[in-house]
Design a protein around this nucleic acid. Structure first.
Length: 420
RNA sequence: GUGGGCGUAGCCCAGUGGUUUAAGGCGCCAGGUUGUGGCCCUGGAGAUCGAGGGUUCAAAUCCCUCCGCUCACCCCA
């Protein structure tokens, strides 16, 4: 027996309403903020992700699905959404469009890791990128849109965590200070942190090991080492978020797992304990486009995990709308009635009325059971008697009343009933 | 990659060595009306008891190995 590969899952019909609910709310937000959809390939040149996400990051180091195709190109299944969008921005000369260029996507994301609740090898993200503008008001807008999206979905108790991790100019100075500070505390710190110290010092800050908390908590703060521009940017952003009425908490230990972020980084976190602490995150990445060979271009973006939103919707008992089933069921008895019923079903659908037929020559009882199981509002009954008289029976499934209607009036009649 | 929990029908699960030809519930199918649903009643289909090996007169039940699922860590969405 074949099973879905580890960490990959079917989204079954019964789950779809969550997904469609999220998607339609997200699309609605996108149009309010002027974003246009982009779809990028599911795989990219492997180098794209190494260049952008960073050589020392976990994603690149141990989580990518990378393979050689038959033409010996080295390809990687997309492990995140931003780099491909930036690649497309450059490849299609979007710097010639009015800036910022605002793009959104829904895409599957692949990371090779041990699956657990809210974490899969294939998962799906909704994300958006605003490319070509450095104004902190744009950062605020990006954050606002994320916040509005969660709100529109009915999620509550989320918190917005914000930090600035500086830019190419001021971050090296900060990292030096951080390393100097940690060098004195290395013996007290967990083994992982000793590795981070060498490979990715920023990550020292968000170590969750109990033993590292005192050291990390007292560490120098990025915000205290920002250059004047970064500092102003961060201050303005907070002011704008205030103007939007968005409550945020600055967390000096928030850093993100991808190397390309500059200045603004933020995450949205649900209250619930345990499981995955982040539902969505993003930030500014002013160096990324240039890193990929484009003009120096500032940009800011956000991405959120669909599976994690679904998880939280369920935890909070949010009920997305159910997709309606066809409201008319046609039960027929005998072959003559059957071919009549095929025609009726077709006519109903042509006039926009969803219709299902009883199939397989089942008894009327069985067909009514089926109609009930489908939740049909009306069942049309058609047998030899009705055929002879040129009528059909319309049965109201709610109360069980039924009456006969001339065959040629059926479509009009049902149209009326549906209105009522 | 590391650690914990768990694997009995589509789903939830009883059964911890011998009346088990593996029970029950949900769901599915059919019948209870000569052409009438939802409730009820009756019947039916559906399980190589995760896989392989071992112990035993006897294994779903004990032992070993493997596989899978799940939760957590790392990290992230």
């Amino acid at each position: 027996m074949f099973k879905a590969p580890r960490g990959a899952a079917d989204v079954l019909p019964s789950e779809q309403r969550y997904w469609r609910y999220i998607e339609s709310n997200a699309v609605a937000q996108c149009s309010l903020y002027g974003y246009h959809r982009i779809d990028t390939p599911i795989f990219e040149d492997a180098g794209l992700f190494v260049r952008t996400i960073g050589q020392g990051t976990d994603i690149v180091e141990k989580e990518t699905y990378t393979f050689q195709d038959r033409g010996e190109s080295l390809l990687t299944l997309r492990p995140e959404g931003t780099a491909p969008v930036c690649r497309a921005y450059i490849e299609h000369g979007m710097h010639n469009q009015p800036q910022p260029v605002k793009l959104y996507y829904f895409s599957s994301i692949f990371r090779y890791e041990r699956p657990q609740s809210g974490r899969y090898r294939e998962h799906h993200q909704f994300g958006y990128e605003a490319i070509g503008e450095a104004d902190p008001a744009l950062d605020a807008e990006v954050i606002d849109m994320a916040w509005q999206l969660y709100g529109s979905l009915g999620l509550t108790g989320l918190s917005l965590v914000l930090n600035s991790i500086g830019c190419r100019e001021c971050r090296p100075r900060y990292l030096e200070t951080l390393k100097r500070y940690y060098s004195e505390h290395l013996p007290q710190v967990c083994p992982d942190c000793r590795v981070r110290y060498e490979k990715n010092p920023l990550r020292l800050l968000d170590c969750k090991q109990e033993s590292c908390q005192p050291v990390a908590g007292a560490a120098p703060r990025t915000a205290d080492y920002l250059c004047a521009e970064c500092s102003n940017h961060f201050a303005s952003l907070q002011k704008y978020l205030g103007a939007l009425g968005i409550a945020l908490q600055v967390n000096h230990r928030l850093v993100r797992g991808l190397d390309y972020y500059t200045r603004t980084v933020f995450e949205v976190q649900p209250q619930e304990e345990g499981a995955q602490s982040t539902i969505g995150g993003g930030g500014r990445y002013d160096g990324l486009i240039q890193e990929l060979g484009g003009q120096p271009t500032p940009a800011v973006g956000f991405a959120t995990g669909i599976e994690r939103i679904v998880l939280n919707l369920k935890r909070q008992n949010v009920e997305p709308p159910r997709t309606p089933s066809p409201s008319v069921f046609i039960a027929s008895l005998g072959e003559a009635a059957r071919s009549e019923s095929v025609g009726i079903a077709g006519a109903l659908r042509k006039s926009g009325i969803g219709a299902l037929q009883g199939l397989g020559g089942k008894s009327l009882k069985a067909q009514l059971r089926q109609a009930d199981a489908w939740g049909a509002s009306f069942t049309i009954i058609l047998g030899d008697d009705e055929l002879r008289q040129g009528v059909v029976l319309i049965r109201d499934m709610k109360g069980g009343e039924q009456r006969s209607v001339p065959k040629d009036k059926l479509v009009a009649e049902l149209g009326q009933l549906k209105m009522a």
